[in-house]
Simulated assay, not measured.
Amino acid sequence: MELIGQGMEGAVYDLGDGRVRKIWFDRRPDDVRPLKAFLDELPPLPFRTPRIHEITADADGQAVSEEDLLTGTALQESGVAEEQALDAFVAVVEALRATVAGPASKALPVLNQPFWREDLSWGEALAALVRRRAAESRHHFRRDVPDFDNLLETLTTRLATIEPDRLSVVHGDICQPNLLMDGPRTAAVLDWGFYSTAGDNTFDAALAAGFFDMYGPDAQRLDNLLLDRFERLGHDRQRMYLYRAAYAITTATIYDADAGDGHYVWCVGNLNRLPR
């Protein structure tokens, strides 16, 4: 087996027969089965998506999954021109907009926490997640975000009122490393499950615009370009700002509980740019 990738959740090895083996670092087989059900439920899309064929356990009880090998070049390494790369982001979000989320989408945890409850709407479920995650990072936010407590109250109140016309499949992490390209065409979309759920497609639009270039010198220009494009496609700009703030609060310290990394700085920047 050849190691072809490693991330926070596991290491991926090429089996040489069109499949890969993923050895999960901190997941048991029962933890991975809801993701398999979600991926099996995905409708046909204009790009390939992961498929898990088998889930077993290693000697320590950690999950091992065998999946399809998805080929292509990560967008940031593909040499695709800026306009074509922006087109690819928009096309992925719009393809997901046409989907209808099924029960396996609602069964997925979000950020490793239960998300949907039968008595909650999409907006209420997202507001509840924001409140839970804010409680874990409040001392950092109070230091770095002016009037954070009032911002949190206003944000969660507004989120709880959102009721999209229908629930689409949300990827939740549309970024350049997760788009595999074949020339200017998106061949595959990777890494579902971190924030994947049934929800409002505008959530993916809001995040994709911010993720296209998070840390580069042109980040704000490219963010605004994509927000403008998504707005022209019918995504409400104020709702996109709300969703970006929700993401910022829920993930700010997910990689570093001490708020010492670049992701936290990016999240705080988005909160401080939020129209009040």
Rank of each mutant, 00 (worst) to 15 (best):
M1S: 15
E2Y: 12
G7Y: 01
M8I: 14
M8F: 14
E9P: 05
E9R: 10
D17F: 04
G18R: 01
V20I: 15
R21N: 08
F25C: 11
R28Q: 13
K36Y: 06
K36L: 10
A37M: 02
F38T: 00
D40S: 14
F47G: 05
I52C: 02
A59W: 10
D60A: 10
D60S: 07
D60M: 07
Q62Y: 09
S65V: 03
L69H: 07
T71N: 09
L75G: 02
L75Q: 04
Q76G: 00
E83V: 13
A85Y: 11
L86V: 10
V90R: 12
E94A: 14
L96D: 11
P103C: 09
S105P: 00
S105I: 01
N112I: 10
P114L: 03
W116K: 09
R117M: 07
E118W: 12
D119M: 11
D119E: 15
G123I: 06
A125I: 06
A125V: 08
L126R: 11
A127F: 01
R131F: 04
R131L: 07
R133C: 02
E136V: 12
R138P: 06
H139V: 15
H140R: 12
R143I: 03
R143S: 14
D144W: 11
P146L: 14
F148V: 02
F148I: 03
L151Y: 01
L152T: 06
E153F: 10
L155W: 02
E163Y: 07
P164D: 05
S168P: 08
H171G: 03
H171T: 00
I174H: 03
C175A: 08
P177R: 00
G183S: 06
G183N: 07
T186E: 11
A188P: 06
A188S: 09
Y195E: 09
S196P: 08
D200I: 06
N201T: 15
D204C: 11
G210D: 10
G216P: 04
G216D: 00
D218N: 11
A219T: 13
L222T: 07
D223L: 14
N224L: 12
L226V: 03
L227W: 08
D228H: 13
R232G: 08
R237V: 08
Q238K: 07
Q238G: 10
Y241H: 15
L242E: 07
R244Q: 13
A248G: 04
T250L: 05
I254S: 08
D258L: 13
A259I: 05
A259S: 08
G262F: 08
Y264D: 05
W266K: 14
V268E: 04
V268S: 01
N272Y: 00
R276A: 04
R276H: 01
